[in-house]
Amino acid sequence: MPIAVKDYSWDQNEKLVYLTVPLKGVKTNKVDIFSSEEYLKVSYPPYIFECLLHQPVDDEASTAQVGNGAVVFKLKKTDSSQWPQLQSDDAGNKEVMKQKREEALEKSQTRAKEKQKAKEEKKRETEKYSINQMMQIEETDRERIEHLKQSERNKATEELEQWKNEQMKQAEQEKLRLLQEKYKEDKIHRKAKKEEHKDEEIQDDMFRSGVRQNGHIEVKFTPRVFPTPVRESTTPLEDEWLKKQAESRRVVEIEDKDLSEQEKNPVWLRDKGNSFFASGDYQSAINAYSHAIRLNPKMPALYSNRAACHLKIRNFFKAAEDSSKALELLTPAVQQNAASRCKAHVRRGTAFCELEMYVEGLMDYEAALKIDRNNEKLQQDADRIRHIIQTETTS
C-alpha cells in the first residue's frame, strides 16, 4: 500500500501558490505527476502525494518542476484572495476525493482529446495552405511557360512571314530578270534575221545584174528550232541550271597564308564536313561548311548539308534558313537537281514541325512527295503531320 506524504510545504502571494513535495531519495525518472484545476497527484513508489486544493487554479498557466530532490509546483490563482489553507475541507472525505480524482481524470482526457483534435486540425490547415501555395506556384509557372511558348510561336510566325515576303520579292526579281534576258535574246535574234534577209537581197541583185564582184560574204546561221511544244520542253531550264552550276564552280580567291591549298577548295571542305557529320561531330561539320560557303556561296549542297547539322543540334531556325537558301539556289527545277530539292524540302519541313509549325512543315513534305512520289517513308511522315494538325484542330 502506498505511503502518503505529509511533510510538504507551501507558500502564496496574490497571484501564485508555491508547493514543494520532497522525493525522499527517489530518482526523478520514477516520478509521475498529474494535475488539474482542483486536484494534484505525485506518485513515486512507494510514496504518493494527493491534494484537493482549497480553490481552483489555472492549470494551463501552472507549472511543475522536478529537481534537487523535490517537486515544486507553481500554481496560478484564479483570483487574488489569500488561502487560509492549501487543501480543501473535503480532502479528508474519501468519497469526495474519489469523485474529484475521477472528474480530474475525465477533464484531463477530454482536454487531451481537444488538444489532439486542435493539433490535427491545425496540421490539416497547414497542409491545405501548403497545397494551395503549390498549386498557385504551378499555375504561375504554367502561365509563364505558356506565355514563353506563345511568344516563340509569334516570333516564328513573324520570321516565317518575313521570309515568305522576301522569297516572293526574290521570285519577282528573278522573273523580271528572266523576262529581260528573253527580251534581249529576242531582240538579237530579230536583228540577226533582219541582217540575213538584207544579205540575201544583195546577193539576188548581184545575180540578176550578172556582175561578179570580189569581196567577203559573211554567213550567219539561225539557230535550229525543234518542233517540240514549249510546255513539254525543259531544255531552256536545263541550260539555265547548267549555266548556274558553271558559275557556282568559280571559287573566290582568298589571300590567307595560314590556309593550305586544300582549305581553299570548297569541294574538299564539303567532303570534310560530310566526314565530320558521319562521325557525329556536327559543330565541326558546320564550321567546315561555313568556310566553304565563304569561298563559294553558290553551292546549294553546302547549305543543305549545314541544315542537316543544325537539325542534329536542334538549331531549327538555322536549319530552316539554310534549307531555304539551298532551295533558292536549286533553281530552275529540273531533273538533275530533283534529289537535292527533295532533301532540302524534307529538312525544312522537319525544322518547321520541330517548331510546332505543322502546316508549313506539311507543305514542304508535300512538295518533296511531288518530286519523289513513290517514297513510302515520306508519305508516312506526311500522314503523321496531317494527323497532328487534325488533332490540334479538333481539340
Rank of each mutant, 00 (worst) to 15 (best):
V5Y: 05
V5T: 04
Y8P: 07
V17C: 01
T20I: 10
G25K: 07
V26K: 09
K27R: 15
T28E: 14
T28G: 09
F34Y: 11
S35R: 07
E38A: 09
Y39F: 15
S43P: 07
Y47P: 06
C51T: 02
C51A: 04
P56I: 04
V57M: 00
V57C: 03
D58V: 00
D59L: 09
V72N: 02
L75N: 01
L75I: 02
Q87Y: 07
Q87T: 06
E95T: 14
M97Y: 03
E103L: 05
L105Y: 05
L105I: 10
E106V: 07
Q109R: 12
Q109L: 12
Q109H: 08
R111E: 10
Q116C: 10
A118M: 09
E125L: 14
K128P: 07
Y129C: 09
I131W: 12
N132L: 14
M134G: 06
Q136C: 12
I137E: 15
I137H: 13
I137A: 13
D141A: 11
H147C: 11
L148R: 11
L148A: 13
W163R: 13
W163T: 11
Q170Y: 06
K175M: 08
L178A: 05
L178P: 03
L179H: 12
I188K: 09
H189A: 15
R190K: 14
K198R: 14
D199N: 13
E201S: 09
R208Q: 15
S209H: 11
V211Q: 06
H216G: 08
H216E: 13
V219N: 11
K220E: 13
K220N: 11
V230D: 15
S233Q: 03
T235A: 09
K244F: 07
R249N: 15
I254Y: 08
D256Y: 01
K257D: 15
S260D: 06
Q262Y: 08
K264R: 03
V267K: 05
G273E: 01
F276W: 04
A278C: 08
D281R: 06
S284K: 05
S284R: 06
I286Q: 02
Y289E: 03
S290E: 08
S290I: 03
I293L: 00
I293V: 04
R294T: 08
L295V: 01
N296S: 10
Y303V: 02
S304P: 00
N305G: 04
H310F: 12
K318G: 07
D322M: 06
K325P: 04
K325N: 12
K325E: 14
A326E: 03
L330G: 04
T331C: 10
Q336A: 14
N337C: 15
S340D: 10
K343V: 09
V346E: 04
R347M: 03
G349N: 01
M357C: 05
M357V: 00
Y358R: 06
G361M: 00
N374W: 10
N375A: 00
R386K: 07
I388P: 00
T391Q: 02
